[in-house]
């Protein structure tokens, strides 16, 4: 236990990535030990299990099969959206004020940790949690869909053959059913749900750097979430009504609004996937770019506020 001024232990103080990862894993562990997964799993089971009781009445066999599958998807993706957004916002809104209140933040910032590393780490930890919980729900949903769609497929093939349908008709029915199953587009939709939650978590991070109250951060974030869904409409109306004289000004305002607030209607592709349409890769790439842009934008904005903060 001698003093060694240039021991390898402190000749370097680690890389940014290393520190961000350490803080992220710590935030993730902290949230897991708050038992978030526990109630998440219970709710996921309830949501997905409820599909079995929620079967539509048998109208026509060839329609009802597809309707059941899309109802499972609709319920599951809806629950996933709700969970991921709530989890993303509340967990982020919780972590920062907690560290400030408990003064644990002092001990972290008294180490050679740049403030931006701290913020990025916390956010990454929440995103990790959202990602893992969505992955778990995705596995559950895909399994249910897989079982259900193969059951329906067998049943409908028997039915179609019994009616003496042509091979082409059977193939098309088969295609219809498979398009409703657990396919790549569905995974894309889940990823889109994750991206949306990520944007909300980053926004909550930005708000929590100046609010310092979990409740305030959460409420404002949810408000913005809902506003984000109407942003495109509002902008269209705004532009139409003011198009006459104030051209550059309105355009500038709408540009600022769309820079600060994402247009959540872009995520309506998730609904299209529920209806059985394929998700084009290009759209997914676009959503990923948008998600990244806003996450980075919000983290940098948070950093500007947080760097000036005193505790």
């Amino acid at each position: 236990m001698s003093q060694h001024p240039d021991s390898p232990a402190r000749s370097n103080s680690g890389s940014h990535c290393g520190r961000v990862w350490v803080i992220a894993m710590h935030a993730f562990t902290q949230l897991v030990r708050m038992k978030v997964f526990y109630f998440l799993a219970v709710f996921a089971v309830i949501a997905i299990g409820s599909n079995f009781f929620d079967l539509p009445q048998h109208t026509g066999p060839e329609v009802s099969g597809i309707a059941v599958l899309s109802s499972i998807k609709s319920w599951s993706l809806g629950t996933m959206t709700l969970f991921s957004v709530v989890l993303g916002i509340v967990a982020t809104a919780l972590l920062l004020p907690k560290d400030v209140e408990d003064r644990t933040l002092y001990t972290i910032l008294a180490k050679p940790v740049p403030r931006v590393d701290y913020l990025a780490g916390k956010l990454l930890g929440v995103l990790l949690l959202v990602f893992v919980s969505l992955a778990l729900m995705d596995v559950l949903m895909s399994a249910v869909l897989q079982i259900r769609s193969s059951m329906i497929l067998n049943q409908q093939m028997d039915f179609a053959q019994g009616r003496g349908w042509s091979a082409a008709e059977i193939a098309s029915l088969r295609g219809d059913i498979l398009s409703q199953g657990a396919n790549a587009s569905l995974q894309g939709a889940v990823f889109a749900v994750f991206l949306r939650a990520s944007i909300m978590a980053s926004l909550a991070l930005l708000i929590s750097t100046f609010s310092s109250s979990t409740l305030f951060t959460s409420i404002i974030s949810f408000l913005i979430y809902f506003i984000g869904h109407f942003q495109a409409d509002a902008r269209a109306i705004f532009l139409e009504s003011g198009a006459a004289g104030t051209g550059p000004v309105t355009r500038a305002i709408s540009l600022v609004v769309s820079l600060v607030l994402p247009d959540f209607q872009l995520f309506n592709v998730i609904d299209a996937v529920i209806e059985g349409q394929a998700m084009p890769l290009l759209i997914l790439a676009k959503l990923t770019a948008i998600g990244l842009f806003y996450a980075v934008f919000y983290v940098i904005a948070s950093w500007f506020i947080f760097a000036e903060k005193e505790f």
Binding site: S7, P8, A9, R10, N12, S13, G14, S15, G18, R19, V22, I23, H26, T107, I108, K111, P112, V113
Partner: peptide, 13 residues
């Protein structure tokens, strides 16, 4: 945790 924040790793830590 605090050791890792200071860039320490593995056996040394």
């Amino acid at each position: 945790f605090y050791g890792k924040l200071c860039g320490m790793r593995g056996r040394v830590l």
